[in-house]
Design a protein around this nucleic acid. Structure first.
Lengths: 342, 342
DNA sequence: ATGAAAGCGCTAACAC
DNA sequence: GTGTTAGCGCTTTCAT
């Protein structure tokens, strides 16, 4: 709408008049529906081109069809995190999954409660057909507000063990367990975990996998080998590793809750004069550029972000078609990417 | 609208019925218009709350009002760049500038021509009131397509010297000149420039500033001291610096076209056994975390991103009100942030 | 101050 | 096949 000069945007009706057909026919042509004589179709298309007609999307949604747009929402107080590879990779994956559709992807960043309210109004207002949410904290009510409004909603990750909304998640428990198994096989015995903030379910899961691996190997649990990071950043990893070295100088392996944390851990280890990986092995969860550009290269637990994005989109589109399904959960396998220094 | 169960979303009419007033009155209350008796207003508000009424935005836009949304578009083939601090900082700045409005910010990423087309349809379809564009290449027609459609459009940066669309830009020429002046004052004489891709106007401007400073100081221009990077990334900076050292081992100062490039240059310099800044001084354009976390800290030419974002939003909102203005240009001053090692 | 009525541009159901 | 018609939910005159 804006203040577009009236007349600038021709309507369906004007196209119909120029083509000498009814509005219904034009509508059919525009929406590529079958059942229009080829010759009329061409006449209409010429009229459309001549007038530079573009459908008014507001009218279209109002008339009962879909908005042809979905929102991908990031709920982070700190927008700098939005520069993290995890986010940009996810956005890319979701965008890729939508390229062949006519669905417009709308990225929205929700920081405050005010923005939360505004977004709910926007979404409930029927401007999107569905919502994808990433990085949702356990206490965030946004997903419930959307779901209650009857909006198809899909989460990346879950807020707790009994999430009542459709989500796609990586097998964080299994991934962490596998990583620790790998360390154990390598002969490591003093294995520590630098976790993410434990009010996030994803961090809890990874910690659980770590503990499972140790207990299955018959090793005693020692929580002094677990240090909680305040977030998943490099700085948090550095601080956590420093604290860990203070407690346990004898540590010979570390599982970090993210690849950025792992890089932070490396820094702290080097500052303490430790050699990696001969002296201390480091495995990071997640796997982006950072892990590749690290020297020595990090072994990582890779999340299938590409597939996570694709799956989220698939579930969302399906949910838009079949509202009778209450919710579904999909867990994707992680993959251990071993990078041993030569 | 999705497949929202009918009746889930009450309409204005139902609110009016419950409150025992006309639809017009409810509309006025919802939009906070004056001229409604305080008692009626309260009655209506109670009905709204009771029904959980939320205005249908499609209907609202259709009825002639604004969409109450603006899009911030990134046109980058490579979405990884979207993780660059320049982008996230700009997004943050624009978001901040919009927090106190009822305007929803929609971030969209446009990579291919297909996505370009889809976005234009979306925007022309009246789902946004205006468009902010960042990182537009010289040959990109998207801004023109939008402007021709009568959509208020504001660019961050310009595509050429005679941009015919409203834009906000930093004083790239002045910033580069100031940086080189600073190097000259420090006694440097063999000053090189690692530029961005020269098909981008911003890169041309920074190169021009570099040349101006040298020529004003009476130094001969020597283009073998200029190396063009393929983009603004760290890798490009590393490669450009390596090439430069091959050509001119005697170089004693470098102006890099971005802070990430500057970091890349540092790496290359160190690999070549050069000491920074005693031996070679480095100044980066732009200024984010990287510059701070670099050792030694980089001197940088800081762009006022906060103010750029604010100004873009202001211009866009104004343009939405006054379509009679053809276009406006705003250039903001940069600031040299000197960080000398102790 | 408030109700009634006329669209906004489109889709979909129904006639022909 | 194609034209006609009835809304979708809201804003906005225009009466009252």
């Amino acid at each position: 709408m804006g203040r577009r000069r009236p007349g600038t945007t021709p309507t369906l009706e004007e196209v119909a008049a120029l083509a000498g057909v009814g509005r219904g026919t034009v509508s059919r042509v525009v929406n590529n529906e079958a059942g229009v004589k080829e010759s009329t179709r061409r006449t209409v298309q010429k009229a459309i081109a001549e007038l530079g007609y573009v459908p008014n999307l507001a009218a279209r949604s109002l008339a009962g069809r879909r908005a042809d747009a979905v929102a991908l929402v990031m709920t982070e107080r700190d927008w700098r995190l939005f520069g993290e590879p995890f986010f940009s990779e996810t956005v890319r994956a979701v965008g890729d999954a939508l390229t062949d559709t006519s669905v417009q992807l709308l990225l929205t960043l929700v920081r405050t409660d005010g923005e939360r309210r505004r977004f709910v109004e926007y979404a409930r207002g029927g401007r999107v057909d569905g919502v994808l949410l990433m990085s949702v904290r356990a206490e965030d009510r946004l997903p419930d507000m959307l779901a209650e409004a009857g909006l198809p909603t899909v989460l990346l990750g879950r807020r707790s063990g009994d999430e009542q909304i459709t989500y796609v998640d990586a097998d964080n428990v299994g991934g962490a367990r596998e990583a620790v198994d790998h360390l154990l096989r390598g002969g490591r015995r003093s294995i520590a975990a630098l976790t993410g903030p434990l009010d996030m379910y994803v961090a809890q899961c990874r910690l659980r996998g770590y503990r499972q691996a140790l207990s299955r190997a018959g090793l005693a649990a020692d929580d002094s080998f677990v240090v909680e990071g305040e977030d998943f950043t490099e700085a948090a990893g550095r601080r956590a590793m420093t604290e860990l070295l203070r407690r346990h100088p004898e540590v010979d392996a570390v599982l970090a809750a993210s690849d950025t944390m792992a890089v932070g851990a490396l820094t702290a280890l080097r500052a303490a004069g430790r050699r990696v990986p001969d002296d201390v092995a480091v495995i990071g969860f997640d796997d982006f550029q950072l892990a590749e550009h690290t020297d020595p290269p990090l072994t990582t637990v890779r999340q299938p972000l590409e597939e996570i994005g694709r799956t989220m989109v698939r579930l969302l589109l399906e949910e838009m078609e079949q509202p009778e399904v209450a919710w579904r959960h999909v867990i994707l396998r992680t993959r251990l990417v071993v990078r041993e220094s030569a």
